[in-house]
C-alpha cells in the first residue's frame, strides 16, 4: 500500500530495476497445451472488492501523443487493445482516472491496494482472478513502460492511475502502477 502522503522517488533517482519475464520451458511432455488459447477474453468488467471498485471496461488505444488512452467517462476503465487479453500470457493493461474535474474517480484508491489482494476481470460468465504482487509509485518519466507494455511470458495484469502533485499544464506528476499475477 502507498500512503496518500507518500512521495515518488526523486526525479534524478536511479534506474528502475526490472523483474523477470518467466520464459516458457519447452519440453516433450504435453504441458498445458491449452494455456495459450483457452478462455482468454476481452475484459468487460473489473472488480476490486478491497477498494470497492466495480467498473465497466472499454477497449482503448493510444491518444495523439502516443500515450495509452483512458475512457472519457471517469467511472470507466480502459483496456489497452494492443496488450494481452484477460487470462492470456503477457501484460493485460488497464488505466483508470484518479479524478475528474469534480473529485475522485474510479481509481482514486488504487494506491491503497495491498499485496495479495484480489482483482478480477470478467466478461459474462468468463472470470479470471489476479493477485496483487506489487504496488509502486513512479515519477512520470521513470515509469517502467517496457515492463508494462512489452511482451512477457508471465500472465500479468497492470493497473495504472495518476498520483502526486497536480500542475494544470503538465497534469499529475506521478503514476501508480499495480501489478497482479493470474491465480492458477
Amino acid at each position: 500500500m502507498i500512503a496518500p502522503g507518500a512521495d515518488a522517488p526523486d526525479a534524478d533517482s536511479k534506474l528502475t530495476t526490472v523483474g523477470f519475464a518467466d520464459p516458457l520451458v519447452l519440453s516433450a511432455t504435453e504441458i498445458d497445451r491449452q494455456s495459450f488459447h483457452t478462455d482468454t477474453f476481452v475484459p468487460k468488467r473489473l472488480k476490486i472488492p478491497s477498494i470497492d471498485v466495480d467498473a465497466v471496461i472499454q477497449p482503448v488505444g493510444k491518444d495523439r501523443l502516443d500515450r495509452m488512452d483512458t475512457p472519457t467517462d471517469a467511472d470507466e476503465v480502459g483496456w489497452y487493445r494492443y496488450g494481452a487479453k484477460a487470462g492470456a500470457t503477457g501484460n493485460v493493461v488497464l488505466s483508470g482516472h484518479l479524478d475528474d474535474l469534480r473529485g475522485p474517480a474510479i481509481f482514486a484508491n488504487l494506491g491503497e491496494l495491498r499485496l495479495g489482494e484480489s482483482v478480477t476481470l470478467q466478461r459474462s460468465k468468463k472470470v479470471i482472478e489476479y493477485e496483487v504482487v506489487s504496488v509502486e509509485r513512479y515519477r512520470l518519466e521513470d515509469v517502467p513502460l517496457a515492463s508494462i507494455f512489452a511482451a512477457t511470458q508471465a500472465t500479468r495484469l497492470q493497473l495504472i492511475t495518476c498520483a502526486g502533485p497536480y500542475d494544470p499544464e503538465h497534469g499529475y506528476r506521478d503514476r501508480i502502477v499495480v501489478t497482479a499475477i493470474a491465480k492458477v
Binding site: K62, R67, A146, A150
Partner: peptide, 13 residues
Amino acid sequence: MAGAPETGQGGLA
C-alpha cells in the same frame, strides 16, 4: 509501446 496514460484532471488537487 505507449506512453503512460493521462489519468487525472485535477479534481482532487
